[in-house]
Design a protein around this nucleic acid. Structure first.
Lengths: 355, 355
DNA sequence: CTGAAAGCGCTTACAG
DNA sequence: CTGAAAGCGCTTACAG
């Protein structure tokens, strides 16, 4: 027969023995085969313990997830993590999170990590604050997700930019439908040469918006001209550059659908430079509905992304998971809606078929 | 001689007995003339204590600032408090605060209170989280300041909107100089009829900007025409309404200086409605330098307010005070700078004197 | 380096 | 409602 390999300290083969009553230093001491005072010394980083003993005790402290009695297991805090805090996005999200958190009497801790793939140095600070839950705007690496899982801290990904495993909770927007609605609005106005400035190909929401565009083009019986699709980073400058190249063509499009509002504002500038009037000579549609786009001239037709509502839903979900409850669903997409303003109109008469 | 009025429990006349060793429930019990278990019950909100006794014990617990042993006296957190989170302002500030806090390995807790004067219900939550310091965007009421002082939590007011007592730490911007620089820019271009849309009269920064305007007008030898100064809330809509009334006059101004960028964007719309071109027919200057104003057409000339730097300075100050150190100065104003873009030009030839 | 012993601050039955 | 007594989890000298 095999020997009794799993005849460990107190728990059965399972692992971190979480369910039972709280771990005490007496329990750690027994497991480590040392006295209570020795464990106390290790925990408080006092001297007078051999490196050997210290290592063994530390290992058990980690394994059993020991916490001092006062240190409440959970801080009443949701950690709201951004990759970049600069977008106009951020306020809308923070507001939504704050509103829900306040109602639950939970604090909102905001932190910004870089765009770099390397784990940010203060990620450990975030984790060690033992928040009720983490709400991450954009990605969490696999390692980060694993770390949170190990510590029992639930998390929700806000508007994920890449494909995630099925069990990762997320809240997003209906990007495909939004792209489709934006494009259909243009086809219904009579446009036939509709260009799309899409975002980076590996960003999920951009891929969805682009596919929505393609779907609407096809539904309108319009050819899928690959020349009408260009990719550019989601900034105003890059949107402008992309629009310049589109508008310089002899068979220039009569409408441009940009992957986000910033790019759309870049299109405005390119149009001005080219002496084209919006919407008379060129229709423009954006995506996001940032507050500012209602104030530019002409006010931008765009796909409204319900950022605040998404933040509310994400926070509710995160807090539910933080309470250890089961959530009705772990992933959801909130509906986008087309907001028609003044940057879209039928195409100029020379190009129009319908009018 | 006077009688021994201050012969209280253990401390001398001083007050909340902070310096000595930590307050225990035994000490509270002795002071209250009850047993240790009774105090324990009160603290943990258990039943089995008369209302009378409970009240007396609670009073002492508050007075001596009793804390459970585990609950560390200071959380490594700066509480960033907004009245309203919606402005584009907010992100810039949060970024600055976050950057500094991260370097000090301190968390940033963001909360939003209403505009109402009544103390927000979650203000107590904020205080009871025992942050290292509080950074308040806009006002703190006298009561709120007193509460923080009583708890020994230092605070800094960001961009104060009303006059504060001398000992209240604050960080602001040089609003008067900014208003002066904006107006001088217009007088130097040759404008003589320069209007100002100022903010509410009781908002300190607006009063300073208005005085800067007046000072520059006087320096340029221009008459102080009270008709050229109107007051309006700091929103785009109100700025637009104010501009409409200014532009409807027979002797309409050739330049408008708005108290903030939002108002200036309102002026843009009023100008469009009136068929006036900017800057050919009307010069416009704003205040704040929000990211968006570089993207509108034409890009707005405005007074740059170094929000991020202000946030950085305010956080450094707050954390310094939080460490119990003396700060070199408790109040400071950071310099504004005029950013000249394309919304300003010499006045139209018919009105100009110089050209 | 280690742990038996004393002690501290708090809580939990439980007797009055 | 109140508090003496027992107990818990942890830390602090201190003897080996």
């Amino acid at each position: 027969m095999a020997d009794h390999a799993a005849d460990g300290p107190a728990d059965d083969g399972g692992g971190a023995g979480d369910a039972s009553r709280p771990v005490t230093i007496a329990y750690i001491a027994e497991s480590a085969g040392v006295s209570v005072p020795t464990v106390s010394k290790v925990i408080n980083g006092k001297s007078g313990v051999s490196a050997d003993t210290r290592a063994r005790v530390e290992e058990l402290v980690n394994r059993y997830g020991y916490r001092k009695p006062g240190a409440s297991h959970r801080n009443n805090v949701v950690e709201l993590v951004f990759r970049e805090l600069k977008d106009m996005w951020a306020v809308e999200i923070i507001r939504g999170v704050e509103r829900v958190a306040r109602r639950h009497r939970v604090g909102v801790m905001v932190s910004e990590f870089g765009l770099h793939d390397t784990p940010a140095p203060h990620w450990d600070d975030t984790v060690s604050r033992r928040p009720s839950c983490v709400l991450s705007v954009a990605q969490l690496s696999e390692a980060e997700r694993a770390q949170l899982k190990a510590k029992g801290i639930p998390f929700v990904v806000f508007d994920p930019t890449t494909e995630l495993p099925d069990d990762v909770p997320f809240v997003g927007a209906t990007n495909w439908s939004g792209g489709r609605a934006a494009t259909r609005h243009l086809t219904e106005l009579g446009h036939r040469r509709i260009a799309m400035i899409s975002g980076p190909e590996d960003v999920l929401c951009c891929a969805a918006r682009l596919d929505g565009y393609r779907s609407a083009m096809q539904a309108a019986g319009l050819p899928a001209d690959p020349d009408l699709v260009v990719h550019a980073p989601l900034t105003r400058e890059d949107g402008c550059a992309a629009a310049r190249s589109l508008l310089a063509r002899p068979d220039r499009p009569t409408a441009i659908f940009a992957a986000n509002d910033l790019q759309a504002l870049g299109v405005y500038q390119a149009a001005r430079e080219a002496g084209l009037r919006i919407p008379d000579d060129l229709s423009v549609v954006g995506f996001d509905d940032l507050p500012v786009v209602a104030w530019v001239d002409p006010p931008l037709t765009t796909v409204h992304q319900p950022l605040t509502e998404m933040a509310v839903a994400a926070t509710e979900l995160a807090l539910t998971l933080g309470r250890g409850e089961e959530a009705p669903q772990v992933g959801l997409e909130l509906a986008t809606t087309l907001t028609v303003r003044s940057s879209t109109a039928p195409p100029p008469a020379t190009d129009a078929r319908g009018h």
